[in-house]
Write a protein that binds this DNA or RNA. Structure first.
Lengths: 168, 168
DNA sequence: CATAGTACTTGCACTATGCAATTATATGTG
DNA sequence: CACATATAATTGCATAGTGCAAGTACTATG
């Protein structure tokens, strides 16, 4: 009476499945960066992403920030809270409409950002060094399309995915 | 007395930084899959990854599983615990050395795996449809190198990264 | 000027995670 | 053969992160 079933199945192998491979690289590369800004500044992942956004976009409101770094409004609000506590950002009320926050990076926030960004650039350089010039170009253009398609997949939800697959 | 500093900085832009772009695609694509196996089977992310590993490798021990899906021993143990509670896996003691677990997928585990894998394959197909044949080949070979390099980056930690960058 | 709507925040319950300590087993040593 | 040491896996507990309901502050509209 055999209980287990090591038999034939759908051919999905984690190690060759594209989304998992992307995830693996992203996760492995994020870990050292995360422990750096965590240990050094007490910053969370959301905090770092928001810091990076307000470093290039002044007086952003919470919704803009959330969109730019794929965070929901709650996480965004908490991340901004963390940054203001650390003195890396300031919240002011919006100019015309005071419901909108106007979040700006501070001088010490920019200093922190530059230190983290240096590490981030070093990581990216290490990765890019493994690729030829033409590979970089291919990946750059392919990633743009994959970003778009993955956003649509996400927006559609799993029900849509099964319908589409069933209707083949 | 200007407190904020929207001035020049290190040129890191989140939206063009390779690790973030990989993360974005992986995260957006994982969300619908995650809500599918979460709602349908009450499976966590770790649970799904372990299920995928034991679907292709019978009688694996916890360390093997952890390595194969990049989970630490604690998360691995808990994931296996979840799978056994759901009836998707069984733990037995190792044959020669009883310290090693021998985790195997059950029939209902395989059924669940096949349903999730179908959705996973549909997602991958949606992504691949956006790429040409030659792009797929380029990305496949590039990802292999990026996986290796990111593993080294992770293993080295952030101190190593700064040393290397400083010694340029 | 009350009503509804928007942008954001907070509180609270729930979940996940990290790490110390524990269990069970195996192996080397006097 | 006892005993210290090592290894694989698990569990307990404190802490941190998340999701969602409700709340605050403001604006727009009939």
């Amino acid at each position: 009476m055999k209980q287990t079933a090591p038999a034939a199945d759908d051919g999905l192998k984690l190690s060759t499945w594209l989304p998992y491979r992307l995830f693996l690289v992203a996760a492995q590369v994020a870990r050292p960066l995360e422990s750096f800004y965590g240990e050094t500044f007490g910053l969370s992942q959301a905090g770092w992403r928001i810091l990076a956004v307000i470093a290039e976009r002044d007086a952003a409101n919470a919704a803009e920030i959330g969109r730019a770094c794929a965070l929901d409004p709650f996480a965004t609000s908490r991340g901004i809270g963390q940054l203001t506590e650390l003195g890396f950002a300031v919240r002011r009320a919006g100019k015309s409409d005071r419901r909108f926050a106007a979040v700006s990076i501070t001088r010490s926030g920019r200093t922190a950002f530059n230190r983290i960004a240096a590490l981030g650039s070093a990581i990216e350089a290490r990765l890019l060094a493994r690729l030829s010039e033409s590979e970089r170009a291919t990946i750059d253009s392919a990633l743009t399309r994959l970003e778009g398609e993955s956003a649509r997949i996400d927006a559609g939800g799993w029900r849509t995915l099964l319908e589409d697959a069933g209707a083949s």
